[in-house]
Amino acid sequence: MKNVLNPLIQSAITWSLIGFIGGICSVFLFLRYKELDFKNEITAGNALQAFTTFALAITVTWFLQKQTQSKRKEKDILIDHLDLLLEEVSSLEEANEKGEMIAITSSLKRFRMNANSVQEILIDLNYPSKVCAASALDISELRKLCTDTPIKELEEAANSSSDQIKDGIMNLTAGRRSLIENTIHKLKLSIIRLKILINE
């Protein structure tokens, strides 16, 4: 992602080429239809004009370059932040696989705090509303799936040891496991989509 030229640089290159070709064409046209007449003297006005044009060109170039670099750095930092979120999702998957409640809850908390921080940064930097909306990574459903103990099922399991109840609990667990996998997959896709939107 980082190696791909961002649209601002691409458009700068395109416009430079157009300007270069346009410049050459206008010189040829000028030489064909006009005769150049150079004066043998340079006035103070000429020198001042040349200096001003040169200084303006340098300042505009410097400003645009700095702005592009700063925007690129900003995007890189945000994308690194989103990579951390993806890593957090992986550690959540691992903790969920092992069934470690504390590891799951702390992973969810870290994820939420990081996601909130990304969203705050995007809003502070005045990113388009489309990007800010995509950064609202909701994990309340995932929290329920990963950390909720269904009361009724537990009570039934505690009060009965019949095979039918055991099978019911097994089915419930399998269903929830696949729901968790799907929700995690959706969350990963949302993060990747956000990375693309930020990189635009």
Binding site: I102, I104, S106, L108, T147
Partner: peptide, 11 residues
């Protein structure tokens, strides 16, 4: 300042 909460704890 906690490590995080599960739904079952909060509920």
């Amino acid at each position: 300042r906690t490590a995080g909460y599960g739904t079952s704890f909060l509920e």
